[in-house]
Amino acid sequence: MKCKICSKRVLGRSDKLFCSIKCKNYYHVNLRKATALVVKELDTILHRNRSILLEILGKKKAQCKIERVVLEKKKFRFKYHTHQNINNQGKTYHYVYDFAWMEFSNDEILVVRRPLNIKK
């Protein structure tokens, strides 16, 4: 078997992937770097989406309807969300952390804030 990094022959156990600690460390450090870059980019998009929803609802309102065009103008990215939930009427709520949106009609979006259940 050959090392995943330098292609030298690997000695020892049959399931060993690297010829040395140096090659093993190199592999894992670069794997973490690549993962961190992708996660940072996605996290930035999710936080921006949440900020847009917070700006629309403000600090007091629990929900409101808004035209889809308004969200599009603010560069809201509809395909990025943390999770989703289908209610008992079959409508899908797309969540960004503690905020959610649902397509109310072709032109309107219902934006809601989910109360946080933080235990102290």
Results as ranks from 00 to 15, higher is better:
E67C: 07
K22R: 10
V96H: 04
S7T: 11
T35R: 10
H81T: 10
K59W: 05
M1Y: 09
I86N: 00
I21N: 15
I66E: 00
L110G: 01
Q84C: 07
N85E: 14
V10K: 11
S51I: 05
G90D: 03
N49M: 00
K119T: 08
S14C: 03
Y93P: 05
I52N: 03
K24Q: 13
F78P: 05
T44A: 15
K73A: 04
E67S: 09
E55W: 08
V69I: 11
K33L: 13
N88H: 13
H83N: 12
L71Y: 10
L54E: 15
Y80H: 14
S51E: 14
L110H: 03
L54S: 13
K40M: 11
C64Q: 13
S7V: 04
V70G: 05
K16W: 07
I52L: 06
S51P: 02
C6W: 07
R48H: 12
R48G: 04
V38W: 06
L11Y: 14
I5F: 03
L11P: 02
R50M: 11
D43A: 12
N85Q: 11
R32T: 09
Y97R: 12
K16G: 05
G58M: 09
Y27G: 00
S51A: 14
Y80S: 06
L11F: 12
Y80L: 03
Y97K: 12
K2A: 07
P115F: 01
R68T: 04
G90I: 12
V112M: 07
N117K: 07
L11T: 13
F78M: 05
L54M: 13
V10G: 03
C23S: 01
F76P: 09
R32A: 12
L31Y: 08
K65L: 15
K4V: 04
Y93I: 09
E55R: 09
R68Y: 11
K73D: 12
R68F: 10
T35V: 08
Y26T: 08
A36D: 14
I21K: 14
I45S: 06
R68I: 07
R68E: 06
L17N: 15
L71S: 02
L57A: 05
C3S: 02
K119E: 09
V29H: 03
D107V: 08
N88I: 10
T92D: 05
I118V: 12
F78N: 09
I56K: 13
C3Y: 01
T82S: 11
L110M: 13
